[in-house]
C-alpha cells in the first residue's frame, strides 16, 4: 500500500485543502475538458503553468506527482513503439534498414504524454487535497440535480463512503487470512496449478464469508440507528462555497475558454 501515490489523500494545511470539494471537482472537470482542446503547445504550456501553480499552493511536491506518473511510463513507451511503426507522416527523421522514423510519430506520442502528465497533475491536485469523506459529500451534492432523472445521489455517496470506511479493515482481514492459511501450509508463491488454485480459493472463500458477515452486521447497525434508504434525512456536514472557491471556478472556466479560443477562433 505504501508506494501507491495516485489517488491518495495527503493531510496538509493549504488553501487548496480548505476549499469546497464541489468547487474542486467542478474545476477539475473543466480543466480536464480544456486539456482535450487541440490548443497546441502554447495551450499546454498555459495549463502546465496553472497546474504547477496549484501544486505549489497545495504544498504538494513534484516528486509526488512524478511517482504518480511513473506507472504510466510503460504505457507511453508501448504507445511510442506502435506509433513509430504505424505513423508514416511528417518529416522522415532517420532510417535503420527498412525502418524509417517519422516526426509525427514522435510528436503524437509527445502530445499524448503531455496530456497524460497534465491529467495526472490535475487529478492529483484534487485527490491529494480532499478527504475521501468530503469527496463523497461533494459528489453527492453535485449529483443532486440529477435526482430528478432518478440518479440515487445519496445512495451512491453512502456506498462510496462505506466502501472507503471498510477498505482498511478488509485489507487487514486479507492479511490475517493469508497468514492463517500459510500456517496450514498454503504456499502462495510456488506450487502446481491445482495447488495454486486451492491456495487462492482458501483466501477468497473466507474473505467473502467475512465480508458478508460484516455487511450483515453493518446493515443491522444502520437499521437499528434509524437508517432507511430513500427516506428523508438531514446532513451533519454542510458544504459552503466561499470567495476562494469562486476564484478557483472562475480560473478553471477562464482556462477552458482560453483553450477553446486557442483551438478554434484564433
Amino acid at each position: 500500500m505504501g508506494n501507491i501515490t495516485l489517488g491518495r489523500y495527503i493531510p496538509l494545511d493549504s488553501p487548496i485543502h480548505k476549499m469546497d470539494p464541489r468547487a474542486k471537482i467542478l474545476a477539475m472537470l473543466l480543466v480536464l475538458v480544456a486539456i482535450f482542446m487541440p490548443a497546441g503547445w502554447i495551450g499546454y504550456g498555459i495549463i502546465f503553468a496553472a497546474a504547477s501553480l496549484t501544486i505549489i499552493i497545495a504544498r504538494l511536491s513534484f516528486t509526488f506527482i512524478w511517482k504518480a506518473m511513473k506507472p504510466m511510463l510503460f504505457m507511453l513507451v508501448f504507445l511510442f513503439v506502435i506509433n513509430a511503426f504505424l505513423l508514416k507522416t511528417g518529416d522522415p527523421l532517420f532510417t535503420v534498414g527498412s525502418f524509417t522514423l517519422y516526426s509525427d510519430a514522435v510528436f503524437q506520442t509527445l502530445y499524448i504524454a503531455v496530456r497524460l502528465l497534465l491529467m495526472v497533475m490535475i487529478t492529483t491536485c484534487l485527490t491529494a487535497t480532499t478527504k475521501p469523506l468530503d469527496m463523497t459529500l461533494g459528489i453527492e451534492d453535485l449529483l443532486k440535480p440529477f435526482q430528478k432523472i432518478h440518479v440515487p445521489a445519496h445512495e451512491i455517496a453512502m456506498l462510496i463512503s462505506i466502501a472507503l470506511r471498510f477498505i482498511p479493515d478488509l485489507i487487514d482481514e486479507t492479511e490475517r487470512i493469508i497468514k492463517a492459511q500459510e500456517s496450514r501450509g498454503v504456499d502462495l508463491k510456488e506450487g502446481k496449478i491445482m495447488e495454486r488454485i486451492m491456495a487462492i480459493l482458501s483466501l477468497i472463500v473466507p474473505l467473502f464469508v467475512s465480508a458478508f458477515q460484516r455487511a450483515e452486521d453493518l446493515a443491522n447497525a444502520m437499521e437499528a440507528r434509524g437508517y432507511a434508504p430513500g427516506e428523508q434525512r438531514t446532513r451533519y456536514k454542510v458544504l459552503k462555497m466561499e470567495g476562494r472557491d469562486y476564484i478557483l471556478l472562475f480560473g478553471a472556466a477562464a482556462l477552458l475558454a482560453g483553450m477553446v479560443w486557442l483551438a478554434y477562433f484564433r
Partner: peptide, 17 residues
C-alpha cells in the same frame, strides 16, 4: 517448520473454506 509449530489464529473459524 510450520508443520511442526501449529499456529491457531484468533477467531480461526474465519479460515474455513
Amino acid at each position: 517448520l510450520r508443520k511442526e509449530v501449529g499456529l491457531v489464529f484468533q477467531f480461526p473459524e474465519y479460515q474455513l473454506f
